[in-house]
Nucleic acid binder design. Structure first.
Lengths: 198, 198
DNA sequence: GTCTATAACCCGATAGAC
DNA sequence: GTCTATCGGGTTATAGAC
């Protein structure tokens, strides 16, 4: 089972992706060179092309797999027929999922404009799919007469923006635990769609 | 009043800034070259250095003047001693101000990582100043016994993220007018901090 | 104030040796 | 599978003519 000199195909691939994710998040796709990624992995630039056809594919694969994971993880959640429970589940799921992978979330928002139009269209559709999950919950709550939401699409966008914003300030070693944060945001979400108010 | 050939100092400066703003917003700071900016303005690349010491200063000046304008515009608003009115004023002001300059808002969020550490610190402090304006309103509302907000700092971040999110989808020729959008968001904000709920 | 030309360097991607 | 070397092009910023 002697290996060719320097042959590490089984581990180098993921390491290329990890290095690209981290560097793209830190400096931005356009500012990161293939040579930088290679240095982080510990190979020469030419070797990267054994794992990706080009730099654009590297970015697209990172964003695509992030969106695929997001949708798959949500679908794997138990179904909640009661809208109020479904909304709480979505709120907590969104915060938890996004806070666990800040770099992937970051580039998924920041690097959309560096995708080719074809690649952008793919990611954009997956994003819309996710937004529709929340929109459907809001519509169900209106139908069940438990939410007051005149504009479900706008409201879904607003709530997702609010929840994703956790990533801009949350530190796991800060004053609030993630559980605390979930509770604070769930209180706001619940009230924002509620029927009664002062 | 004969001009030197090609002399347009009084108008070229703003045109350089406008071109940089537009191109940075479209393609990202790192992806835009000084040659591209020059071409947009209609001069050669070398001429840009009559208006900016380097590319970094161009970015910093755009972000700095955006934050200065934001704070100055907010301070120019009439004072509202009643917290509920102050919050409505902030909500509508934020949406209006940000929707009027989507490119400046966009680069102010996206290009922070391309600032030098010193420049970043300046912008970050201005951003914190603005966030504190909302936080103070929330604390006043709690003191006046009209808001229920356990975490004013977190809530301020959450509300700002939600309001800024308007820029990701709002089109002035869409189904909803900006006035409609303000109302939908103000309903959510008001309820999110309200004392009563279902 | 703008031009042309250039210094000094970096880029993505590929070819061919091992 | 990884290396070195390279192609053809790009970059920021400056120098000096006009």
């Amino acid at each position: 089972m002697a290996r060719t000199q320097g042959s590490h195909s089984d581990i180098t691939g993921p390491r290329v992706r990890d290095a690209a994710l981290s560097l793209f998040a830190q400096h931005g796709y356009a500012a990161v060179s293939m040579r930088q990624i290679a240095a982080e992995v510990g190979v020469q630039a030419g070797a990267l092309y054994n794992y990706t056809s080009d730099k654009q594919s590297l970015l697209f694969d990172l964003l695509k797999s992030h969106m695929d994971q997001l949708l798959a993880s949500w679908m794997a959640q138990p179904e909640a027929p009661v809208a109020m429970q479904a909304l709480e589940q979505f709120t907590r799921f969104h915060i938890r999922f996004h806070s666990e992978r800040p770099e992937a979330v970051f580039i998924s928002y920041m690097e959309l404009r560096n995708l080719t139009p074809e690649n952008f269209a793919v990611i954009e559709e997956l994003r819309k799919d996710y937004e529709t999950k929340l929109e459907d919950i809001l519509r169900a709550g209106v139908a069940q007469n438990v939410f007051s939401v005149r504009e479900p699409k706008v409201t879904a966008m607003a709530l997702i923006a609010m929840l994703t914003g956790v990533n801009t300030w949350f530190k796991s070693d800060g004053r609030l635990s993630l559980e605390d944060v979930e509770q604070v945001y769930w209180d706001m979400v619940r009230k924002a769609v509620s029927k009664r108010t002062d």
